[in-house]
Amino acid sequence: MVSEAGVGPNILLAVKQVPDVSELRLDPVTHSLLREGVPSVLNPYDRYALEAGLRLKEIHGGRLTVVSMGPPQARKALQESLALGADEAVLLTDRAFAAADTWATAYTLSVFAKTIPFNMVLTGLKAIDGETSQVGAELAEFLDIPHASYVRKIDLRGDMQGVTIERQLENGYDVWELPLPCLLMVAKEFGQPRLATLQGYIRAKRQKIRILTAHDLEALGANSAYFGLKGSPTFIPKVSPPPAKPPGTIWSGDPKESVRKLVDALSREGFV
């Protein structure tokens, strides 16, 4: 469904709650992951998408709906989105969704997306746990709308008829024009995301998060065979950690002496 032209944009934003992998540590002795107490956080990349949505709302008005598929703890990511200024939050949660791969995740999100009016869908560039960067593109396909990734700038036309974007490239950027509705995967070059305010948090605490289960989505026309593990075509036979790197060399003491040793070593290895 697409909203009428003339009013502010309806923006749908998909966010994910992820383990804070930046906090994962290898045990110095056993080299196993220290998972204890590693909390879940809002996927850092999704903060840039949120920032994009909030800035669009500041300019054009409209409505920002945030959706997440995940366990009940994903409420925290949604609550933070509300604190930052999202208007509505929806959590798709059910045991049936568990262990979804990117395809099943995108499918499930698309079922919800089709029930609300939107001009634009925003996602993070990737999630820091899976790092596949697939959900955004797959969601666009399910919704049958164009998409762009690595988006660093969004200029929405006032008449809601199109959008001009910049895509970050390795050395430069692309400028694209897309029709609406479209899906944009926002890169961190978009700009520093804001911090939630005290009043924002307090308002968010009072807002209700809409919960939809597998049953609810089926009532909206979803095929439950595509949910979760059983709807996931991805098969992972084995996960193995990268091989350990050989230890580095540390030269301490007099800086001049250390630099000389470094240059010697680099030339010995044929780097300089």
Partner: peptide, 10 residues
């Protein structure tokens, strides 16, 4: 106050 601006006052 927990930061700048009215939005951070209580």
């Amino acid at each position: 106050r927990a930061g700048r601006g009215k939005e951070n006052e209580l």
